[in-house]
C-alpha cells in the first residue's frame, strides 16, 4: 500500500512533467532563448509548482512526522559554498546544451525515445562517477 501510494506520487509527477513541456527539450531551450524564439511556458510550470508546494508543505509540516516514516528527512544545511554555486552552474551549462534536466528526462524515458535513453545513460554515468569521487574525497579529508 505504501509503495503503491509512492508509485502514484511518481505518476502524478510524471504526468505533470509530460503535460507541462519540461520533458520536451525544444520547449525547454526556447524558454531560455529570450533573444530568439522565446516560449515563456516554463515560467508557469515552476511558478505553479512552487506555489502549490509552498502551501502544501505548511500542511505536511504541521504533522510531527510523515505518514510512512518516523521523521522528516529535509536538508538542514544553510552554508553557501563553492560546490553548491559551481555545481549548479555546471548543471545549467548541461541543461542549456541538451534541454533536459533530471526531472524532465526520467519521465521522458517512458516515451521510449532513443535520444532520451542516450541522455539518461550519460547523465547516470556522470552522477555515479561524481558521487563515488566525492564520497572517496570527503572520507579522505574528514576521517570518521
Amino acid at each position: 500500500m505504501r509503495l503503491l501510494l509512492t508509485y502514484l506520487t511518481g505518476l502524478i509527477f510524471g504526468i505533470g512533467i509530460s503535460i507541462s513541456g519540461m520533458a520536451n527539450p525544444a520547449k525547454v531551450i526556447n524558454f531560455f532563448d529570450i533573444a530568439g524564439i522565446w516560449d515563456p511556458s516554463l515560467a508557469l510550470v515552476m511558478g505553479g509548482a512552487v506555489l502549490v508546494a509552498m502551501v502544501g508543505y505548511r500542511f505536511a509540516f504541521a504533522r510531527s512526522a510523515p505518514m510512512f516514516d518516523t521523521m522528516f528527512h529535509v536538508p538542514t544545511r544553510h552554508d553557501i559554498d563553492l560546490r553548491l554555486v559551481g555545481g549548479s552552474a555546471v548543471f545549467g551549462v548541461g541543461w542549456g546544451i541538451s534541454g533536459f534536466c533530471p526531472g524532465g528526462a526520467i519521465p521522458a524515458l517512458g516515451t521510449g525515445r532513443s535520444e532520451v535513453v542516450i541522455f539518461f545513460v550519460a547523465m547516470t554515468v556522470g552522477i555515479a562517477l561524481t558521487r563515488l569521487y566525492l564520497r572517496a574525497k570527503d572520507t579522505q579529508t574528514q576521517p570518521a
Binding site: 520536451n24 560546490r83 555546471v90 541538451s98 533536459f100 533530471p102 542516450i118 541522455f119 552522477i127 558521487r131
Partner: peptide, 30 residues
C-alpha cells in the same frame, strides 16, 4: 507527449554527462 530534440546526439551525450556532474556536486536540480 511531444519530445522534440533540436540538438545533436553528441550534444545529448556531452550535456548528459555535464548535467550528471553538476547536479551531484550542486546537490540538486530543478
Amino acid at each position: 507527449p511531444a519530445v522534440e530534440v533540436p540538438v545533436s546526439t553528441l550534444a545529448m551525450i556531452v550535456g548528459g554527462i555535464i548535467v550528471g556532474v553538476g547536479v551531484t556536486v550542486g546537490a540538486g536540480c530543478t
